[in-house]
Simulated scan of single mutants.
Amino acid sequence: MTVLNTRERRKKILDWLRQRGQVQVRAMAQQFSVSEMTIRRDLEHLAREGHLVRTYGGAALAGGLIPELPYAAKAAEHTEEKRRIARCAASLVQEGDVILLDAGSTTAEIARCLKGRSGITVVTCDLKIAMELCDEQGIRVLVTGGTAMPQVYNLLGPIAEQTLRALTVNLAFVGTSAADVEYGLTTPTLEKVPLKQAIIRAGQRSVLVADASKFSRRSTFQICELSAFSMIISDRSLPQHVADAIRKGGVPLELV
Rank of each mutant, 00 (worst) to 15 (best):
T2S: 14
T2K: 14
T6M: 07
R10P: 09
L14C: 06
L14N: 03
D15Y: 08
R18K: 15
R18M: 12
R20Y: 13
G21K: 03
V23N: 00
Q24P: 00
Q24L: 08
V25R: 02
R26H: 10
A27N: 11
S33E: 12
V34T: 06
E36T: 09
M37H: 09
M37F: 15
I39G: 00
I39F: 02
R41I: 10
D42S: 02
L43S: 02
A47V: 01
G50N: 05
H51N: 07
L52N: 01
G57T: 09
G63Q: 10
G63E: 08
E68C: 09
L69R: 10
P70K: 05
Y71F: 15
A72G: 05
E77S: 12
H78E: 01
E80R: 13
K82S: 01
R83G: 05
I85G: 00
R87Q: 12
R87G: 01
C88G: 05
A90P: 06
L92R: 14
Q94L: 13
D97E: 14
L100P: 04
L101R: 04
G104D: 02
T107Q: 04
A108N: 06
A108S: 14
C113V: 09
S118L: 14
G119Q: 13
V122S: 06
I129V: 14
A130M: 14
M131N: 08
C134S: 12
T147F: 13
M149F: 13
L155M: 10
P158V: 09
I159T: 10
E161H: 08
R165V: 05
L167P: 03
V169L: 04
F173N: 02
F173K: 06
V174L: 06
V181A: 10
Y183Q: 09
Y183G: 08
T186G: 06
T186W: 07
P188G: 04
V193C: 03
P194H: 05
Q197W: 01
V207N: 04
V209G: 02
A212Q: 09
S213H: 06
S216M: 11
R217F: 03
R218N: 07
T220H: 13
F221H: 15
I223N: 00
L226S: 07
A228F: 10
F229K: 02
I232S: 01
I232Q: 00
I233V: 12
S234A: 12
S237P: 01
P239A: 10
P239N: 13
H241I: 09
A243S: 12
I246D: 02
K248G: 09
K248W: 13
K248H: 14
G250L: 12
G250M: 08
V251N: 01
P252T: 11
